[in-house]
């Protein structure tokens, strides 16, 4: 597919201690013609910031680690300042395939949808404990937002300009995934899911959301719901 040149597509990569993989991820995006890349170094203690910067992409650095939600929100903010038409969030750990970006932005370019979620294939090597955690995440997302999604915790998502302007991410950690669906539901944003590939290497399996962080995410979501009721 030939990318439209008049549309500004920005790729936001939240990264925490990803020095082993960040260069490969950026290079793979370059090879597919995506040059507007924003890396948000979320308080890494390794050379993630320097490695990302050496590729000439926009790099924002959180002085301390906040979590993937806050890093994504910062990346979105930078994309907004750069007048992005489409923003794609992309995991730094190499589990996404850059070819999928073209597929997930198509409904936005066609002006049919404002948010597109990349739906990973769980049968293709995803650890079973991670699969259970993912299902629990989907269930909690449904309880909070009223939307049942096949892969609420997916890192590959695409947002139109309208969606970027109206979605407000206030959660710092993985709970931002569920928060996005809450925003989609309450703000009547048009969305859809599209199947994507997931590359499970030992590295990407070690990264991402574990069962323990899943439990912590769930408890934070409960507190946030109560907080919303109290403010």
């Amino acid at each position: 597919m030939l990318m439209p040149t008049n549309i500004k597509i920005f790729i936001v990569i939240p990264a925490f201690n990803e020095s082993l993989q960040i260069s490969n991820t950026i290079e793979s995006l370059f090879s597919k013609g995506f040059h507007n890349i924003i890396v948000v170094d979320d308080g890494s203690t390794d050379s993630t910031f320097e490695d990302a910067k050496s590729h000439g992409v926009i790099v924002v650095q959180h002085p301390v680690n906040l979590g993937v939600g806050a890093a994504t929100a910062t990346g979105m903010e930078v994309a907004k300042r750069e007048n992005a038409d489409v923003v794609v969030t992309f995991d730094a750990d190499g589990q996404h395939h850059p070819d999928d970006i073209e597929n997930i932005i198509q409904p936005i370019l066609d002006k049919e949808k404002d948010v597109v979620i990349g739906n990973r294939d769980f049968t293709n090597g995803m650890p079973s404990l991670r699969r259970i955690a993912n299902f629990a995440g989907n269930f909690i997302t449904w309880a909070i937002s009223g939307l049942f999604v096949s892969d609420s915790q997916s890192g590959l998502k695409a947002f139109s300009k309208t969606a970027i302007d109206s979605i407000n991410i206030s959660a710092s950690g993985y709970e931002y995934c569920s928060e996005i669906f809450r925003e989609i539901h309450y703000k009547n944003i048009k969305w859809c899911e599209i199947s994507i590939q997931a590359i499970y290497t030992d590295y990407s399996k070690a990264k991402g959301q574990s069962f323990a962080t899943g439990l912590s995410t769930a408890s934070k979501l409960v507190v946030r719901s109560l907080l919303r009721a109290n403010t």
Partner: peptide, 24 residues
């Protein structure tokens, strides 16, 4: 206490993100 911590976390995130954008 949980609500208080949550509010503090939000404020901290706002400050950190503000610093990050300023430095950029």
């Amino acid at each position: 206490l949980l609500l208080f911590i949550e509010r503090l976390e939000r404020k901290l995130a706002d400050v950190v993100r503000h610093i990050a954008l300023y430095e950029l």
